[in-house]
Amino acid sequence: CCDADSSKQPRGLENPQVLATETVFSVSEIEALYELFKKISSAVIDDGLINKEEFQLALFKTNKKESLFADRVFDLFDTKHNGILDFEEFARALSVFHPNAPIDDKIQFSFQLYDLKQQGFIERQEVKQMVVATLAESGMNLSDDVIESIIDKTFEEADTKHDGKIDKEEWRNLVLRHPSLLKNMTLQYLKDITTTFPSFVFHSQVDDT
């Protein structure tokens, strides 16, 4: 029943060279990232796949919390739309968060993140939903008037076409004026992934370390 070939790469890491070619990661970084993937994907069910519960557990260190954003990030990572993340989806998505990834990829990903209904634009109601969710999550209390005022000012600046929604072009202009809005799209950890998970060398198929 079993594959006795021990030289075979683990599930999901059959071809690290291809993933390295198609992402910003080197082969060694792909292999180190696999160590992180193994850790997250074995937290609840050790099946070599990350389900939503495991993703949430890794993000919040608890599985009790409902989060609009964790769901949204998971759904964007899940490009095969089957409710689970395989290593390829995980690596391709995290590649966008690498400090060396193109800024346009980060702009595009963040736009998709905030375009909750995936209509090709961010509407006011979605911004309000996300602001309310963030405040609830952090235990901050702001009156509805204050929230409306924050959103008014944001739309005054971002919605340059004055149609009540923020399209991709307006989003791009906004984040280029305010680069701090993309701060969470860059993970410095990814630059040091091989030193964070040095054990990858024991399974490495390449000699580029």
């Binding site: 954003f69 702001l142 959103i151 000012k153 809005l181 701060k183 993970l187």
Partner: peptide, 25 residues
Amino acid sequence: QPTSMNAFKLISMSKGLNLENLFED
């Protein structure tokens, strides 16, 4: 002043959007 804050700046502070937690024990 919270009203001078950009709504997206506030949103980007959400824990669910800060993926560095994936790397921490």
